[in-house]
Amino acid sequence: MLIPVLVGVAFVIFVLLYLTPGDPARIILGTQSTPETVKALRAEMGLDDPFIVQFGRYLFNVFFRGDLGRTYVTKTLVTDEIMSAFPQTLKLAFWSVLLLSAVGIPVGIVSAIKQYSLLDNAVMLLAMIATAMPVFWLGLLLILLFSVHLGWFPSSGFDTPMSMVLPCVAVATPSMAVVVRMTRSSMLEVIRQDYIRTARAKGQKESVIILRHALINALIPIITIIGLQFGVALGGAVLTESVFSIHGLGRLMVDGIKMRDYPLVQGGVLYTAFAFSVVNLFVDILYAYVDPRIKAQYQRAGGTKRTAPSR
């Protein structure tokens, strides 16, 4: 699945940029350029070739040489630019997903057990507010309160643990709300199942029933949501990175778009799709570990694939 998805994404982004008005050669050379120099550069860059040739060349370079091209502005390799921005984004994605899981899942469980209680209603209200809140606005408010007024955390940068707190909280909060709601609804469904009653009839402790019997059965949709959030976060948190001036992928992409740096944008989008697909692959593998029924399905699917050619 990975390769077709990436080719598809490459195609879409390539068409979009191809159709976008504006001549890259002219942008590179600036307003002072003569038509002759522009024409020469167009020929050199292969921009006069038919669309299919350009696209084919791009695909070949990407998939067989791992070459995303050079940026227009700084002439550096796009892969280098992405690789230098990636660690920041990965750190942000990892810690915020850890934070949202560590808080979101337990809160969702408690909310489900105490359904319709005051606590549950309060959690649901907070979750709704958190989902509705724009991330950059939350980020700005966090900076205002915790760095400007209280001075507890630095307002920018992403190198020390202290400086990572605010951005992670900003990125994690809306997704955390989604995880809380998903955990709650999934748990509510599982708690009513017959096998939970069976476990109670065994005389099992309620805490063990919730954690061992209910949570594992409720885990599939929760894993899905967390995986999605992680994939999205790996693509860079554009707004959060701008607010906290973190030099991650989001910032890189925004800069690329501002400067009409097509190779950079193409590469960034392609990379994002790649990261997303890889995370999804891991999520799919994780399903098999959580649910033996899904594992059996995978095995059956694998079995038919193996036997199909022999027939």
């Binding site: 009653r197 069976t198 019997h213």
Partner: peptide, 15 residues
Amino acid sequence: AMIFQDPMTSLNPVA
């Protein structure tokens, strides 16, 4: 001890 009505749903599917 109790035996429940529907064996299809009385067992934990992931254990």
